[in-house]
């Protein structure tokens, strides 16, 4: 079984990527400086903090939450987040009786503008294969044990649609500011493999 935690690539792969970059640069089709910028953007500026702000706003503002559940893409754009892999956003709301999880069984589709780039486990065969047939078992591996009465809904991305989970706001956090709320919302709670707990 291959390890999906990437460490050592085949030397051939490293060379191939270098060859593609040098050939495409020579042909004037790419600019290495523009590549640097794209990498920096996705490594340092776009990440789950964006999604956490969306969640915090939805918890703090019922009207915003309504818009978010009605038209995720537009409501997320209100906070300034949009772009590749976030063109058709659907937000699924956790309630005391329903827990949602997202997966992409066919590929590794993920809502980049709100969550950044996906972790390796999200792209791995074990998660992609099992999330849809044994979600409770998967959640257990993440240390989450839900009451058996709670229904679990698993959302499998299509070629277009990207899902994000609106986690349940923990009790006792009503008085917190949006920034404080965003601080307690971690990435996995917006994938559905974690729940948010009060600080």
């Amino acid at each position: 079984m291959a390890s999906y935690k990437h460490t050592a690539a085949l030397p051939d792969t490293v060379l191939r990527v270098k060859a593609l970059e040098s050939l495409l640069t020579e042909k004037g089709l790419i600019d290495p400086a523009a590549l640097d910028e794209l990498i920096d953007t996705y490594e340092n500026r776009i990440g789950p903090r964006n999604g956490a702000q969306v969640v915090a706003r939805a918890w703090a503002d019922p009207e915003y939450k309504k818009r978010l559940l009605d038209d995720g893409t537009s409501a997320i754009l209100e906070l300034g987040f949009s772009g590749v892999q976030g063109e058709d956003m659907v937000i699924v709301e956790n309630t005391p009786s329903v827990h949602n999880m997202i997966v992409c069984t066919l590929c590794s589709c993920y809502p980049w503008p709100v969550l950044g780039l996906p972790p390796v486990w999200f792209k791995s065969a074990p998660y992609r294969s099992r999330a849809v047939i044994d979600p409770r078992g998967v959640l257990k591996e993440f240390g989450v044990e839900l009451d058996p009465d709670i229904e679990i809904r698993v959302w499998d991305s299509t070629a277009e649609t990207r899902y994000m989970v609106l986690p349940l706001q923990p009790e006792g956090t009503d008085g917190m500011s949006e920034d404080e709320l965003a601080d307690i919302v971690q990435r996995d709670s917006m994938i559905g493999t974690a729940v948010v707990t009060a600080p």
Partner: peptide, 16 residues
């Protein structure tokens, strides 16, 4: 093989 939903025997999820 990319159509992985429901396949069995892929092992534990490796969380880093």
């Amino acid at each position: 093989v990319h159509d992985m939903g429901g396949m069995q025997g892929m092992g534990a999820i490796d969380i880093e």
